[in-house]
């Protein structure tokens, strides 16, 4: 079986997933995702619209959250805090990869 380019879903800040997709992908319920949005830990790209969309990179953190919830039997109150920390770790890891690279202009002939 061959998998073409078009079949991939990119999980990054350039692509979006809908709320329904996030429910299906993460294993969290609609109520749990609503709680995350209400607490400010998960921010939709279009908070004022009826059908929310999110940057697809959040799928990774939300799935980790879902695993932690299942494996550690987390209480709902711990969700938001855990997601905030997961996102902070993701950001720090990204910054760590870029340490020491500052930019100065040059010329190409």
């Amino acid at each position: 079986m061959n998998i073409d380019h078009s079949e991939w879903m990119w999980l990054d800040e350039h692509h979006e997933v809908s709320l329904d997709e996030l429910i299906e992908l993460s294993g969290l319920s609609l109520e749990e995702l609503h709680y995350l949005v209400k607490s400010g830990a998960l921010i939709p790209n279009n908070p004022d619209e009826d059908t929310w969309h999110f940057n697809s990179h959040c799928v990774v953190s939300i799935r980790t959250l879902s695993r932690l919830k299942h494996d550690f039997e987390l209480e709902p109150n711990a969700f938001a805090l855990t997601l905030v920390f997961l996102e902070r770790i993701r950001t720090l890891e990204f910054q760590l990869r870029g340490l020491g690279h500052t930019k100065i202009e040059g010329d190409v002939e």
């Binding site: 079986m1 061959n2 998998i3 073409d4 380019h5 079949e7 991939w8 879903m9 990119w10 999980l11 990054d12 992908l25 990179h57 799928v59 990774v60 890891e93 990204f94 990869r97």
Partner: peptide
């Protein structure tokens, strides 16, 4: 066989 497209970054996560 899966074709990884141009434009992936180090640490990129993708979903099928």
């Amino acid at each position: 066989k899966a074709r990884i497209p141009k434009g992936v970054t180090n640490g990129q996560k993708m979903l099928l």
